[in-house]
Amino acid sequence: MSADEAMIVLDNVSKWYGNVIGVNKLTFEIGPGVTGLLGPNGAGKSTLLQLLTGQLAPSQGDLRVLGHKPWGNADLFRLIGLCPEQDAFYEWMPGYEFVLFAARLSGFSGKEAHEAALAAVELVEMTEHMGRPIKGYSKGMRQRIKIAQAVVHDPDVLFLDEPLSGTDPVARRHLVDVIKELARRGKSIVVSSHVLHEVQGMTNNVVLLNRGRLVAVGDVRQIRDLIDNHPHRIAIISPEYRRLAAELLIHEDVVGVDVAPKNRSVVIETNAPDRFYSRLPELASRAETPIEEVYSDDDNLEAVFKYLVNQ
């Protein structure tokens, strides 16, 4: 992405806690849109989020959000929003009051704060419950209020830590739409989550950490293509699956075949997906080798993650 598009820039950032390393030499950029921040437990995701939101100072390297250093920079908080993983509410406060409080903390006052709070609460569809104290909220409702307080001041960069935890599929669908809508407005939204299929539903752009180091950054499919050593697994379903397998096996880039008679499918492993795919339309057009379905269960986020983390 172009230099002026990048909203978050890290250059050789490291953070140590005594002997324990939190993150190690991270260098990458994040632009507008939704970006998934992924990694196993202990990968450094929370450390990274804390660095980006100014709760920690980097031990080494240069870190900028919207051009400013986050550490000790209270002004930056007007431009960024954080929805943390833990619940840290004033349980007795009604939801609306809590969001209003957040608005005031960000510098809004009076009527502006009131309108902003109302808008935020409406965005997360909590208008119906905003008068009740948070103590009585379900987990999903708490999540929505947390998101509301993170967006009430219309920040340009948003950090969401496990935003969908505890939400039921209805609320989840809706929140994903909200996140996508905010992304469309040009904001940069960093979503840290363990639930890979949720992240995949929001974006293809990911930052993958493991053991404090950067493993991969970018579009999932591009990352997949770059993984050379790992053959692509492509599934083909056809009434003539065995004949298809035989036809395809002739070529040198095919290195493995798994047969699944129950599904009338074969899963072919190939080192050259490009060449492989280009053979299919011609084959499928022949009467004796029709193809009903073709897909790769391999270039989704979970497969890529699993492969990269287990290196």
């Binding site: 599929p169 669908r173 490009d274 795919y277 280009s278 299919l280 339309p281 011609e282 499928a284 057009s285 029709p290 193809i291 009903e292 379905e293 073709v294 897909y295 790769s296």
Partner: peptide, 27 residues
């Protein structure tokens, strides 16, 4: 059936990477 889609791809030299009948998701 899908063979129409395959033939169109063969004719126009396109590489189909994914083709599956639409099924509703559990969601």
């Amino acid at each position: 059936g899908p063979d129409l889609i395959w033939r169109t791809a063969a004719q126009s030299g396109k590489q189909i990477r994914y083709l599956r009948p639409r099924r509703s998701t559990l969601e």
